[in-house]
Structure formats: structure tokens, C-alpha cells
Simulated assay, not measured.
Amino acid sequence: MKPVSRVSGKALPLGRADVDTDQIVPSDALKSISREGFGRFLFSEWREDPDFVLNRPEHAGSVVLLAGPNFGCGSSREHAPWAIQDYGFGAVIAPSFADIFRNNCGKIGLLAVELPQETVDALLSLVRADPSATVTVDLEARTVSAPGVTASFEMDDFTRRKLLSGLDDIGMTLTHEADIAAFEARRPDLLPVTR
């Protein structure tokens, strides 16, 4: 996982509430365990509508996804954040997230930022009026800023530190490699060892 401290650029004004993981990436696309290649399935059913916001050329290259409340609800499929990240988004801003979805985002380096509904509405209005507006998520400062909008957000220190350091769960474990090796060296020979 790459370290992430800031995501800045255009934003996609999705704004829909209760978007479940099957709407984010349909179950028939889940044929791989690799994180790569799922971006092409992102919101695939909705993208059949030529007027869907993700199909509009003015939103091409967006790196921040602006969503409605309860984003990522439904099943716990980790493919949903994989698809969002693989498509090119580095952050999702919403009034609330499903817990498992938010946790899955933190495990892959995708920022899931909760802001009050009125702040998300202000960002949605701004981006709908000016699709070229820059939205910046600064993880170090724990702020979101855009023309006329500045807000602070909360993120637990552990997840924030992992994201800033670029450490996934395995990477966090490997920061204790010397302790693990010392423990294994002290174990009796009759017990299994890890290699």
C-alpha cells in the first residue's frame, strides 16, 4: 500500500444515499481475488444510462467521490473499495459509511471521510455548478477544503497512522518482525515454526 496524506483534484457528485456494495460493483464481476481490474465494473448498471454522472465528460479524471449517507452498505465485499480505487478515486466523502466498507477502505489506502450532511451538500452544490472545482482531502491536517468550503473530519489515530505510513495489515505486522523472530527463537523445537 502506498502512503497517502493528501488527495486533491476534481470530484464526482454522486450524492446518492444507501448505495450498497452490489451497486458499487455487481456480484457477477467478482471472479478475481486480485485488486486490479475492478474499476471497469464500478457502478456498471448505472453506467448503462448515458446521462449517469460518471459518464459525463466534465467529471472525467475525478479523484474524490462525493456520496450520500450510508454509502457502502449491504454485503461486506472488499471488491467495492477495490473498484473505487482502481477506477482512480483516492477519497470518498459521505455523511456516513457502513462500518465494514469504511474499514475495508482503510485497509487499501482509500480515504473514507465522514462530514456532516450540510457540508457534503455544499460540496455537491459546488461541484455540480463548477465541475472543475478542486476538492482537497488533507489527512495530515484532517481537513477537507474547496472554494468556499472548509471542514474538519475525524479519523481514528490508528487508521490515520497506517494510511500516512502506507502500511496495510501485513505491513503493520512486519513492523514487529524482530519481536516475531525473537519469539520464534525462544519457542521449543517441538512446536511448529513460521517461515
Results as ranks from 00 to 15, higher is better:
15 G>D: 07
32 S>Q: 14
28 D>W: 12
187 R>V: 04
88 G>A: 05
192 P>I: 11
25 V>I: 14
156 D>W: 00
8 S>T: 14
110 L>I: 05
178 A>Y: 12
42 L>T: 02
7 V>L: 09
28 D>C: 14
44 S>A: 14
179 D>M: 05
148 G>V: 01
174 L>Q: 09
157 D>A: 01
157 D>V: 07
185 A>D: 08
98 A>S: 14
77 R>N: 10
167 L>Y: 03
105 C>S: 10
27 S>Y: 08
99 D>E: 10
178 A>M: 12
4 V>L: 14
184 E>Y: 06
135 V>S: 06
109 G>D: 04
60 A>T: 13
57 P>N: 13
179 D>G: 09
152 S>T: 06
4 V>P: 11
71 F>D: 03
25 V>S: 10
95 P>K: 11
49 D>L: 13
22 D>Q: 13
134 T>C: 08
56 R>G: 09
144 V>F: 01
110 L>C: 03
13 P>T: 02
4 V>A: 13
189 D>W: 12
135 V>W: 05
118 E>G: 13
136 T>P: 02
142 R>E: 00
193 V>C: 12
64 V>I: 02
36 E>V: 15
133 A>L: 01
138 D>I: 03
163 L>W: 12
39 G>R: 15
142 R>W: 01
30 L>F: 06
60 A>M: 15
54 L>T: 14
153 F>V: 03
71 F>C: 05
77 R>S: 12
168 D>L: 05
116 P>Y: 03
182 A>D: 13
53 V>G: 11
71 F>E: 01
157 D>R: 04
181 A>K: 03
63 V>W: 06
33 I>V: 15
128 R>Y: 09
14 L>P: 04
20 D>V: 02
43 F>L: 13
105 C>G: 07
